[in-house]
Every structure is written in C-alpha cells, then in structure tokens.
C-alpha cells in the first residue's frame, strides 16, 4: 500500500482533499500540494521548528508527520492567522511592532509556537516565554524582539484580566 491514499482535512477553515503517498511529509504536502508556502522547512528532522503548525489546535512539527496522518484533522498554518481582509492578528501585529523578524524564515514557526504557548499559558513570565520559544530557532534576531512581542500580547492579556 505504498500507493497514494486519498486524504481530506480542514486547513485554515477550508476543507481540502488530495492524494498522498504514505511517505509524503505533511510539511511537503502543505507547501507543494496545497501551495501554502508560509510554512517553512529548515531542517526536516524536528530541530528548527520553522515548520510548526497547529494540528487540532496544538503546535506540532509538520516535518515529523506524514500527510496521511492528517486525514480528518483540523490544521492551521500561518496563512490562517490574519483575517480574510488581511488584517494581522494580535500576535502578528506585535511581531511587526517589536521588530521580531529580520529574514522571516523562522517567523511562521515562531508565530504558531507562540500562539500555542499563549493558549496553554495566557500570561507567561519572561522565563516561560523563553522556554516556550526555545522550540523554534532563529538565526537573525537574537530573540529579544520576539520575546518582547510575545510579552506585549501576554501583557495585553494581563491588563484585560
């Protein structure tokens, strides 16, 4: 059964169908079959985090999953963060305001990992933010701006409580 399998899942709110050989990585399927190239591939072995997406609401490395494993799942990628009219979501806006990206290669992974981090812990300390963001490597920023951006969103939530 190395032949392609039919798969169908929801991604960024839309149902998409396709065919995937079992060996096809979910990251490749998202990028090459669905054309959603916002999700980046850095290392292909689970180390860099650039390929992080939300799988049924929780962050995963999409280079460490097979496309066939997404059958029936609900996925979200960086393309699903901004609203349909292009309005950035709060986290994206904070990244922009705090210069949390330079080349932008790590950014999709950072955003999705930070999104999950803030979901399980809406008001993290700086230490918790740094621990959480250690899931994704950035070769440009030195992390400071990224930490500031996540802190800013967490701060809004502190204030809102």
């Amino acid at each position: 059964m190395a032949e392609p399998r039919k798969i169908s899942f929801t991604i960024n709110g839309m149902v998409r169908d396709g065919q995937a050989e079992p060996r096809r990585l979910l990251a490749d399927f998202i990028r090459d079959d669905l054309g959603l190239t916002g999700t980046h591939i850095g290392c292909e072995h689970g180390v860099c985090g650039a390929c992080t997406i939300l799988f049924n609401g929780a962050a995963v490395r999409s280079c460490l999953m097979l496309a066939v494993q997404a059958e029936g799942a609900d996925l979200r990628t960086v393309e699903g963060l901004a609203s349909a009219d292009g309005q950035l979501d709060r986290l994206q806006q904070a990244f922009r305001d705090h210069h949390a990206l330079q080349c932008g290669f790590c950014t999709p992974g950072m955003l999705m990992a930070a999104w999950d981090l803030l979901r399980v812990n809406p008001t993290p300390t700086e230490d918790e933010i740094r621990t959480g963001l250690s899931a994704v490597l950035c070769r440009c920023t030195g992390y400071q701006g990224i930490v500031e951006a996540v802190k800013a969103v967490a701060g809004q939530r502190h204030a809102a409580r």
Partner: peptide
Amino acid sequence: GHLPTRTR
C-alpha cells in the same frame, strides 16, 4: 523536548 514535540 518542547511543547510542539510533546503534542505528538
């Protein structure tokens, strides 16, 4: 690992 690897 990290939260995203612990998800799986």
